[in-house]
Computed example of a mutant assay.
Amino acid sequence: MSLTAEQQARIAALVSDHQTQPGGLLPLLHAVQDELGHVPDAATPDIARAFRLSRAEVRGVLSFYHDFRDEPPARHELRLCRAEACQSMGSEALAQRLRARTGLDDAGRSADGGLELRPVYCLGACACAPALLLDGELHARIDAAMLDALLAGCLEEGGAC
């Protein structure tokens, strides 16, 4: 997918702001995602050129960090913690319930773009396991009933979680 002229101009301005900053690649990638909602693959060549990196190196950074996405976000994003503390408190059963209720894989996205499931391997809420993030909001000590209640708004047409 190609970039619009407006997107190209905005990315160029962000590159200009970050390219001379030591370690500026990560702040730039975050700025692009904050601005556009994702880091378009079409932006990779310009970013690579500005930082004197290969496209593969930039893509490697993007794929290493789970927070970066290469397509616009879904209306709702649910990140279920799959780390050991949450697993020991039932996150695997919650993951199975999510798959059954949504018909999505652990890292799936609904066809209508309404819901995206993304596993995460620690939310820093180990003492309150199991935990999940829904649209950036932490929910802790989740059980099946709480998960169902959180999903109800997401699965309704135009619902808000």
Rank of each mutant, 00 (worst) to 15 (best):
L3C: 09
L3R: 10
A5R: 14
E6S: 13
E6G: 06
Q7T: 07
R10I: 06
A12Q: 14
A12L: 02
A12V: 00
A13N: 13
L14S: 09
V15P: 04
V15T: 15
S16K: 15
H18D: 07
L26D: 05
L26S: 06
A31Q: 07
V32K: 01
D34H: 14
D34M: 03
L36R: 08
L36F: 12
G37A: 09
P40I: 03
D46Y: 01
R49K: 15
R52T: 10
L53M: 15
A56I: 08
A56G: 06
D67L: 04
R69H: 07
D70I: 03
E71Q: 12
A74Q: 05
L78D: 06
R79N: 05
C81W: 04
S88N: 12
A93V: 11
Q96L: 13
A100L: 12
T102R: 00
T102E: 02
G103A: 10
L104G: 11
D105I: 00
D105L: 06
D105W: 00
G108T: 06
A111C: 00
G114T: 15
Y121S: 05
L123P: 05
L123E: 09
A125W: 02
C128E: 14
C128D: 13
P130W: 10
A131N: 15
L132R: 07
L133V: 03
L133N: 05
L133W: 04
G136W: 10
H139V: 08
H139K: 09
A140W: 00
R141L: 10
R141F: 02
D143V: 09
A145Y: 02
A145I: 03
L147F: 02
G153C: 12
C154W: 01
E156N: 06
E156S: 15
E157M: 02
G158F: 04
G159A: 09
